[in-house]
Amino acid sequence: MAKLITSAESVLTESDVTPEKLFLSRRKFLRQSLYGGSAIALASYYPTIAWASLPASAEHKLQNLKRTVTLDEPMNSFEDITSYNNFYELGSSKDDPKQHASALSTDNWSIQIEGECNKPGTYTLEDILKPHSFEERIYRLRCVEAWSMVIPWLGFPLSDLLKRFEPTSQAKYVAFETLYDKNDPLPGQTRSSIKWPYREGLRMDEAMHPLTFMATGLYGKPLPNQNGAPIRLVVPWKYGFKSIKSIVKIRFSKTQPKTSWNMLAPKEYGFYSNVNPKVSHPRWSQARERRIGELFKRKTLMYNGYEQEVAHLYKDLNLKKHY
């Protein structure tokens, strides 16, 4: 069931991960024993994580990775990162995605490449991943709901992937879509809370930026389904919803693509959605955020702390207007 991959030396030292995991599962065990019978407790003691099924050729790549981007802020635990998710396809509460994770099947995954490029077509996940060397990057993730985490992602730069399809000069934007099968919807997709499929998009220069990342794993393992298995986008200077999960389609486009939250509430979620403490949101003040694991809020950084790297992309943009 659970495909366990020994965590790479460079990713985590033995003392980093093992005691914590054991500690957490012990706590969970104690908790469950209090709630239910010991049989239920025993059953839940064993990991019930639904992982991405990655091609064998890709799985070994998640080991011994070089950490290319790091942060001197403590990382959130694997437990935090995989138990508190916004993934409306698997339900709208934070604990729904983990609970319904097994409903998402990542077998025989493929991605459709469309639009303004020389090499459109349907590529299997194996084809997508094959030529890339993987690396580990520790990024902040800032949700528009004013909470944040620090996550060790595994993957490769999006630009390396996009170049392979030879986008033409007409390609000004890149659009992404999440899995949606009308005849076999995921548990959250039976509700029309969002117009499915989930859509996201980036301007071409944002997509080609060296920080923009395609993640296929975290903490030395393939992505758990609730985190957007088997492959997702990570754009660390934008609000979390821009980092679309479980991608099945990438389209190069001349015009700015439609994005899901913007379609739902254009006054609240702009196309850019760059983390910006100075642009207020009708629901959440964006000036401060709660780092998961901390009780009190801390100040939010401009572009989520990646100002040096990305500010130049927006120097001609009115950020109050293009929020």
């Binding site: 437990e79 138990s83 934070k94 709660r290 009780l295």
Partner: peptide
């Protein structure tokens, strides 16, 4: 007391 208020206890 049991540290069981979830990932975001304040929420």
């Amino acid at each position: 007391y049991a540290d069981n208020l979830g990932t975001n206890p304040v929420e």
